[in-house]
């Protein structure tokens, strides 16, 4: 009879675990930012799956530990043995094989989703400088057949150059316009050519669920397909020096007409350039501890000069 009770308790415990971990897996979607690309949906599916599996294992083992703490306590002076079991071949093989299968399953899910990300455009084009062979096969150049099957990368309608320079993002649009805002037409694929001028920078928009480093001297591109209109924030995500935190840019996903409209407006009336790093250098915030340490290569004069240079329409699509 006690044996039966144990089995019932175990069943209830496992059922409870499955219920709670499934619920947590569903909750996981709400822990993420808005889904602004088709890729985001896939990444969130993977995260939800990982949370459910992880919660099952974590709560299962921690549950066993807590149960032990509650019910297997020794009397204060009882230093006699607990149980003499030194191991169990069956059990040990089981808990070696089970994680192998589990991580194989997780890796399969992950690679599967990663492949889908590729199809949707995460495939990066890495091109090494100095005439070396590309590290990966470059994706096919944008084909004009609009409804190619999902097995090839989507053709990119637009190409925007993303230039990262301590500590500003600059975007150069096909019509030659340069701005500090990234505008993307919704439901269309845009190819982003990432260029770092000085040090490593990280292109990261949380709502897009993708991040890619820009490396000086290398041409790296990605294709994004935003599906949700709105304003987002691009944040440098690879440490780039003193004013790293300020290296942000606004990202607008908007309808095709609004996008075109914006491009024309900016072409006629260029935006004023705002260099947050220089502004902060000129008006440093009051801090309790102050140093006079070198703040990196951002003396206002050279920044201003390089900016003036950056905004001259020039063709450096080499």
């Amino acid at each position: 009879m006690p044996q039966l009770l144990e089995y019932i308790l175990l069943t209830v415990f496992i059922a409870g675990l499955i219920f709670v971990s499934h619920w947590l897996g569903q909750q996981a979607y709400t822990w993420m930012p808005a889904q602004a690309t088709a890729e985001a949906q896939r990444v969130d599916d993977l995260f939800s799956f990982l949370v459910a599996i992880g919660a099952f294992i974590l709560l299962g083992l921690v549950g066993m530990m807590l149960y032990s703490v509650l019910f297997f306590r020794a009397k204060p002076d009882d230093y006699s043995e607990g149980h003499p079991a030194r191991g169990s071949a069956k059990l040990e093989i089981l808990w070696t094989v089970a994680p192998v299968l589990l991580v194989a399953w997780i890796a399969f899910q992950n690679i599967n989703i990663y492949e889908q990300l590729n199809i949707l455009g995460l495939q990066q084009i890495v091109q090494l400088p100095f005439g070396m062979a590309p590290a990966t096969a470059a994706i096919a150049p944008p084909q004009q057949s609009p409804e190619t099957a999902q097995t090839t990368p989507k053709p990119a309608a637009e190409t925007v150059q993303v230039i990262a320079k301590q500590w500003n993002w600059l975007f150069r649009y096909p019509n030659g316009v340069t701005a500090q805002e990234l505008h993307l037409p919704v439901n269309e694929s845009t190819r982003l050519d990432l260029k770092a001028e000085d040090v490593l920078h990280g292109f990261y928009i949380p709502e897009f669920r993708l991040r890619q480093d820009a490396v000086p001297g290398r041409n790296i591109a990605l294709v994004v397909t935003p599906i949700r209109e709105g304003k987002y924030r691009l944040q440098d995500a690879e440490f780039s020096g003193t004013y790293f935190a300020l290296m942000q840019a606004d990202v607008y996903v908007e309808s095709r007409p609004a996008y075109e409209q914006w491009l024309t407006t900016v072409a006629q009336q260029p935006q004023a350039f705002r260099n947050t790093a220089t502004l902060e250098q000129q008006h440093p915030p009051q801090t309790l501890f102050k140093t006079s340490w070198y703040p990196g290569s951002s003396d206002p004069a050279s920044i201003a000069a390089s900016f003036a240079d950056s905004f001259k329409p020039k063709d450096d699509r080499s």
Binding site: V43, L46, L50, G54, V103, N110, L117, Y204, L210, Q212
Partner: peptide
Amino acid sequence: VMLASNSFDLHVNN
């Protein structure tokens, strides 16, 4: 293990 899944890692990396 979550971070080892590169599709997810690309979101939370750094």
